[in-house]
């Protein structure tokens, strides 16, 4: 287990380092970041001033190492627009996005796991087919359009839920559904496949032969084993959601990291953009690492590979 963990940790650190390099170079894609900040038609003198002010005149590797060194010390630079340390703003907004992500993944799991179990208990039944059809339909709906449609029906026509803001728990219902529904088909399919495999195994037959109650066999014996890959999938999807929440947060005006990202992209706030991409990537690396560890802990066969 230790050797496996160390190997995984090494890869995770290397990935994080590579991500930091890519994130850093992002602002050089257009060539000259000073020119990008100054905007078109800026005077040569102004561009030069900006270049010196933000340190773009130094050799590029010095800039990267300086940036990386500061980042490792929790200093991600100062926002061009908010005139505040980027790290402060990000960690102020991060809990909101985490909360939204947690609500969304909970919604997805609560919906998908029972559906997946039911589909596996009665494969190829009407129920199985209907849930499969719904999954295909769900995956074709653009999330922003689905969110707007939810707002229209639940917020405007039926007046059941608040449309924007984050004052109460009710505000998180629609955003969580809009963010989480996209994950449901994948979780459902994986639960179904896992359950089908487990249900045909010998120990389930034994449990049934002993005369255990069907529900007990299904949930205590079968689901426990079938759920292992679902845990890893849910963790990875949670990581994707944090990045994908930008669309949902802008629509519902939830003041999280996604909304912050959208604002800073609109205003070309380069340090903020870099930092958000970096933070979200690192969180993803961390989550997948923990998911790997959890999987290896639950399923000893993985550790050997």
């Amino acid at each position: 287990m230790l050797a496996y963990s160390l190997k995984r940790l090494g890869v995770a650190l290397l990935v994080a380092l590579t991500v930091s390099l890519i994130t850093f170079s992002m602002i050089y894609i257009s060539g000259d970041p000073a020119l990008a900040i100054a905007g078109e038609g800026a005077r040569q003198q102004d561009v030069e001033n900006i270049r010196r002010f933000y340190g773009f005149d130094r050799p590029i590797y010095v800039q990267y190492l300086d940036w990386l060194w500061s980042a490792l010390h929790g200093d991600l630079g100062r926002s061009y627009n908010l005139r505040q340390p980027v790290a402060d703003v990000i960690f102020q907004r991060l809990p909101t996005t985490m909360l939204l992500g947690a609500c969304a993944i909970t919604f997805a799991l609560v919906l998908a796991i029972p559906l997946g179990v039911l589909a596996a208990v009665k494969p190829n039944s009407i129920f199985d087919r209907v849930s499969l059809t719904l999954a295909v339909i769900g995956q074709a709906m653009p999330s922003f359009w689905f969110a707007l449609t939810l707002i229209l029906w639940f917020g405007v026509y039926w007046r059941l839920l608040p449309i924007t803001g984050q004052d109460s728990w009710w505000n998180f219902v629609m955003p969580s559904i809009a963010l989480g529904y996209y994950v449901t088909p994948a979780v459902m399919r994986l639960t179904r496949a896992g359950m089908l495999e487990v249900l045909s195994s010998d120990y389930i037959r034994t449990a049934r032969a002993k005369g255990l109650k069907p529900m007990r066999v299904l949930f205590k014996h079968a689901l426990r084993n079938a759920i292992i890959p679902v845990v890893a999938l849910a963790a990875v999807q949670f990581g994707f959601m944090l990045g994908g929440s930008i669309v949902i947060e802008t629509i519902f005006q939830i003041n999280g990291l996604g909304y912050l990202a959208w604002e800073s992209i609109q205003r070309k706030d380069l340090p903020m953009m870099q930092a958000i991409v970096l933070v979200l990537s690192i969180i993803y690396v961390l989550i997948t690492f923990l998911a790997d560890m959890l999987n290896a802990f639950l399923d000893p066969r993985i550790r050997v590979a």
């Binding site: 991500v19 944090l242 990045g243 979200l280």
Partner: peptide
């Protein structure tokens, strides 16, 4: 793995804006 760890929508938006 590196590519998967970077959020697609965010990176796309950032690059397009730059």
């Amino acid at each position: 793995t590196t590519r998967l760890s970077m959020p697609v929508v965010l990176v796309a938006l950032a690059v397009v804006s730059i």
